[in-house]
Design a protein around this nucleic acid. Structure first.
Length: 294
DNA sequence: CATATGTCCTGAGAGC
DNA sequence: TGCTCTCAGGACATAT
């Protein structure tokens, strides 16, 4: 569920970790199946300890922590993963905790004491994941490029031009909503925002890409940017299941602005004529207004 | 090559 | 009340 706006919101929340050194890595035990760790936990922990976070980026729907030895910690929340700067109320689904200390007072030993005393001077990164489909990977630079390089992940949905979007998808026979969720074509869009983007663009979700003209591709690209920017401004979307949260159990706000997603049978807020319809595309729910999107 | 389908997982909610 | 069933959708493996 975390798509570009949610992951970007998580990224911004943990930016204070930059410049801090990893002093503890904890994976709480639970009866749940473990998430994917690469490499496995003992090695992952050993390699992380003592590293300093140099930068925090986003690659599509993944968070990327750049460490001082040029390795990359890639966190992939998939369906229910959350990256938080403070402790979630539900401890049962905490999968990994990274404690960091400031480097000013130096020694990891002193830093560890501060961590135990309530980590006053440092900060922490919590990875919480209810369904456990997510993954945490510590990768060398070359491994990172294999996973997140241009061969696997397309241009970011916030950056891509209309011309490049059209060039990448314009010849495809796939239905446009399905194609927009192809991370190799354009990175960051998932099921919720694909529906919202196409509604704002006025394009029917089942139209094959190759039937769209220049004007429609431009409309899609403009809608993509504006919808995603609006959603980031709101801190993402917390759906009915309530899984997605910001720090302190705070909900996102963009669900209040959804025009079509999860609004089946309700009046379209733009035309106020038709009711929002739902159908299934690639085993996923698509929502659209039959009047605004033809 | 392009496109379509099945799979992983947990918890919520429906239906009986 | 308590059981079983279905659904939610991210990315990847496998199938067509």
């Amino acid at each position: 569920m975390p798509e570009l706006p949610e992951v970007e919101t998580m990224r911004r929340a943990i930016l204070p970790a930059i410049g801090h050194r990893i002093v503890a890595v904890v994976a709480p035990r639970s009866g749940l199946r473990p998430i994917t760790f690469q490499p496995h936990l003992p090695k992952l922990r050993r390699r992380l300890l003592g590293r300093t976070v140099r930068g925090i980026d986003r690659c599509g729907k993944r968070l990327v922590l750049e460490l001082d030895d040029a390795s990359r910690l890639v966190i992939e929340p998939r369906m229910t993963g959350l990256v938080l700067p403070d402790e979630p109320l539900d401890h049962a689904h905490i999968r990994l905790v990274i404690h960091l200390a400031g480097q000013l007072a130096g020694e990891a030993k002193a830093a560890k004491h501060r961590v135990q005393d309530g980590h006053r001077a440092g900060c922490s990164i919590y990875y919480w994941d209810q369904r456990g489909l997510g993954a945490v990977r510590l990768l060398s630079l070359s491994q990172f490029w294999q996973l997140c390089g241009p061969a696997r992940i397309g241009p970011d949905a916030l950056e891509i031009s209309a011309a490049e979007l059209q060039q990448r998808l314009g010849h495809s026979r796939r239905q446009v909503k399905v194609a927009l969720m192809d991370q190799q074509a354009v990175a960051g869009i998932g099921n919720i925002y694909a529906s919202e983007i196409l509604h704002r663009a006025g394009v029917h979700p089942a139209v094959p890409c190759c039937r769209l003209d220049d004007v429609q591709w431009l409309a899609i690209q403009k809608a993509m940017r504006s919808v995603l920017h609006d959603a980031i401004r709101c801190g993402g979307s917390t759906l009915r299941d309530g899984t997605y949260r910001r720090s302190g159990r705070q909900e996102g706000g963009f669900q209040q602005h959804h025009q079509v997603y999860d609004r089946e049978g309700q009046l379209c807020l733009r035309c106020r004529q038709a009711r929002i319809a739902r159908f299934v595309q690639g085993q996923r729910s698509t929502y659209f207004c039959p009047n605004c999107q033809k």
